[in-house]
C-alpha cells in the first residue's frame, strides 16, 4: 500500500495498492513526487485484498479503485498521516489470523533461496503439497511454485548485481539447471536477459542492505 504525494499539488494524494507482482513494470512520476507506504508480509495479502485475492496478482489499483477496495483510504485526502495512523485504517483487523504453517513455510522458502523442493517444504509443515498450495494461493495470491521462482529470480539477480558473480556461477548457485533456464526466468519475471540487467534497476529490499 503506497501513498503518492504529487510535486505540484502536495495536498492531493493518490493511494495505490499493488498486488503480488510477477512481471516487471514501469512507474511514471514527476521529479519531486514523494511516496511512502506499508509493505505487508506476503501472507497478509488476503487481509488487504479480502475476497479479491485471486485477482490481485499483477494488479495495481490507483486512486478511486484503491479507495473502493479500502474505503478508509478516502480519509487520506488533504491530510498528512503518519504510517502509524494509516496502518489501522488499511488493515482489516476482522480478517482471520494467518495459518502459522504458512508463515513458517515462507520463512523456510526465503531461507532456501526458493530452491527447496515442494515436497520437502510440505514435509517441514507436516502437510501435503496440495494443502500448502491452497494456503499460498488463498493468502499470497500466488502458487507455492511461482512464489519460489520469484525468490530464486530475485536472489540470483542479487548474485549478479550485488555479489558480482559471473553469470554462469550465478546460474549454478541460484539453482538453475542451465543458462537457458535462467534466461527464461529472467525474461519472465524481470523482462531482461541476465547479461543485460538494467543499470538503473531499483530493487525493493526486504532488509536494509
Amino acid at each position: 500500500m503506497i501513498v503518492q504525494h504529487h510535486r505540484d499539488t502536495p495536498k492531493t494524494v493518490t493511494p495505490i495498492i499493488t498486488g503480488p507482482a510477477t512481471r516487471a513494470y514501469t512507474v511514471s512520476y514527476d521529479a519531486g513526487d514523494q511516496w511512502f507506504g506499508l509493505r505487508l508480509r506476503p501472507e497478509s495479502g488476503a487481509a488487504l485484498w479480502k475476497g479479491a485475492m485471486a485477482q490481485a496478482t499483477d494488479t495495481v489499483l490507483r486512486g478511486q479503485e484503491a479507495i473502493d477496495l479500502v474505503p478508509p483510504l478516502a480519509e487520506l485526502d488533504g491530510r498528512h498521516l503518519t504510517l502509524k495512523e494509516i496502518a489501522p485504517l488499511v488493515l482489516d483487523h476482522t480478517a482471520q489470523s494467518v495459518d502459522t504453517r504458512l508463515t513458517r513455510a515462507l520463512d523456510v522458502l526465503h531461507a532456501s533461496g526458493g530452491r527447496i523442493r515442494m515436497t520437502t517444504l510440505a514435509g517441514f509443515l507436516s502437510c501435503s503439497t496440495r494443502q500448502l498450495n491452497r494456503l499460498f494461493r488463498a493468502n499470497t495470491g500466488l502458487s507455492t511454485k511461482t512464489y519460489a521462482q520469484l525468490i530464486q529470480f530475485h536472489r540470483t539477480l542479487g548474485l549478479i548485481t550485488r555479489a558480482r558473480l559471473p553469470i554462469t556461477a550465478a546460474a549454478f548457485e541460484g539453482g538453475y539447471a542451465d543458462h537457458a533456464h535462467m534466461t527464461r526466468a529472467f525474461g519472465r519475471f524481470g523482462g531482461f536477459a541476465p547479461s543485460r540487467v538494467p543499470p538503473d534497476l531499483t530493487l525493493p529490499q526486504l532488509f536494509p542492505q
Binding site: H110, G123, F124, R155, A163, L206
Partner: peptide, 19 residues
C-alpha cells in the same frame, strides 16, 4: 537466524527435526 542467511545472499536448507 535463518533470515540472516537471506540477508547475506545465501540459500540454505533449514534444519528440520522431523527430517
Amino acid at each position: 537466524g535463518n533470515e540472516a542467511a537471506e540477508m547475506n545472499g545465501l540459500a540454505i536448507l533449514p534444519n528440520d527435526p522431523k527430517g
